[in-house]
Write a protein that binds this DNA or RNA. Structure first.
Lengths: 255, 255
DNA sequence: CGTGGGTTTGATCCGCATCAACGCAGGTGG
DNA sequence: CCACCTGCGTTGATGCGGATCAAACCCACG
């Protein structure tokens, strides 16, 4: 799954495009859509050669979403998969009494909505305004049959996700609050660009309660741990949503 | 991946069979091995038709192992994948200071040792005496190329594992000790046969400390929770390693 | 019969949750 | 432009669930 519209491309009409039949005269334009997509080299799309892009463009549609918009609901019949082009989403499970556990955050290039069974395993909701690309399940199946590399890519991506899930199991099952937060900050810093001056930093667009729901901690605890890490000189809180890693080795030791 | 020797079949020499070139005269016998395997209909093997079994038999070798035998080590180069034919193994990750988190138990039909990266993501060790089937990574890759259904099967199995891992994340991140144990017992009871009299029961061959390491609890806590569930009439402890589910609804409510 | 690992039970401790209050920023309406 | 409101973040006080420590018990085993 996956493909995407370049961030610099003019917005595609977001209204109910999924129902539109593949119009022949648009094929060329549609090819251009995926070819110029910012996620072209990521997610599922990376499995396809340039010549195979029309297939991709024809079977997928971009969507522009505001923040806090639900995309799929846990348990709902899984009719499509999605690729993130820009923005961030949270994926979470809910217990009957309302407790929520965030199983992951999805950012540019990530794919979500793959279901092992009939229904989605989790709810997906935008954290920031996001652009995502929607591909019906049947189209994905067709893509896999037509382009074997897609299936291999999907397997590789699922394996990486499984490995990440097992790391999270280790974190939740064994680690203390300080260790969890340190691990989280380090993992994020590995995936993000350092500041202009070269020091590593992380961007946290999601509210603290969501970070807590991901790490199995309450927001109060998260706040206290961050203060402790700052007092220890390991990090500096630049703004509410950006943290500079002053001492990666100290975080490493705490994780 | 996967295949296996029927439990009733005479043991195949376990010594260093992986290095043996596929000997032509043995093909017939080797075909029979997988054809009569108790795991034939499970794991990866289920993806193959009878006619494709020789390929499977030629590239895999069964191993008989005593309990508490390590099979693969976390971080070690992943040279092979394994299918469980009988017995049970625990898969776990270890922190530098020795804390361990069991990420799963593998029983008949389960496949383990698939690695997203270069090295194994976890250590695998037998809990009971077990028979497992070993297939070199290169052979698995060849099987996937030659029999596309194998790749599809692998994807399906990995997806199911991912979903299970996310359930475990929910358990570890949100649930209380009583909820964890209840969920665990229910999950096991769904996968096991009821007693002769029809009441559901679960078999727990692993030590309590391992169940605790899976659920993020200490063995003392596990013992107390089981006593509480027994006093509540939800379960009965028949022996140290077998529990009868008296009241599934009560467990359901507690989970 | 003695030994040692796994299990159970009891007593105590501690890390994090919970409860409560306050500061602050952004949005709204006057 | 300002008063008000609302939601997020922070800080402090307190409580509780499960960890830790310690000891007895129970078998399986030699």
């Amino acid at each position: 799954m996956t493909f995407s519209v370049a961030a610099t491309t003019a917005a595609v009409p977001p209204s109910i495009p999924a129902a539109m039949p593949a119009a022949q005269p648009q094929v060329a334009a549609v090819t251009g859509r995926c070819a110029g997509c910012s996620a072209r080299s990521k997610g599922l799309c990376a499995a396809l050669t340039a010549g195979e892009l029309p297939d991709l463009s024809a079977s997928s549609r971009p969507l522009d979403l505001l923040s806090a918009t639900p995309v799929v609901m846990e348990g709902e019949e899984a009719e499509a998969v999605f690729t993130v082009m820009s923005g961030m989403l949270k994926l979470y499970k809910t217990l009957p009494d309302g407790r929520q556990q965030i199983t992951g955050f999805a950012t540019a290039g990530d794919v979500f909505g793959l279901a092992a069974g009939q229904g989605y395993a989790y709810t997906a909701e935008t954290v920031t305004a996001s652009t995502i690309c929607r591909m019906p399940r049947a189209a994905l199946r067709r893509m896999m049959e037509r382009h074997p590399a897609v299936q291999g890519r999907l397997l590789a991506m699922t394996s990486v996700e499984l490995s990440a899930a097992q790391d999270q199991i280790l974190l939740l099952g064994c680690k203390t609050a300080v260790e969890r937060v340190s691990s989280f900050l380090l993992a994020l810093s590995r995936r993000s660009r350092p500041l202009p001056d070269g020091t590593p930093s992380v961007f946290l667009p999601m509210p603290k309660v969501d970070i807590g729901a991901y790490l199995g901690l309450r927001p109060e605890t998260l706040s206290r741990v961050l203060r402790k890490l700052e007092e220890a000189g390991a990090i500096t809180r630049l703004t509410n949503d950006r943290i500079r890693i002053e001492n990666p080795a100290a975080l490493e030791a705490a994780a």
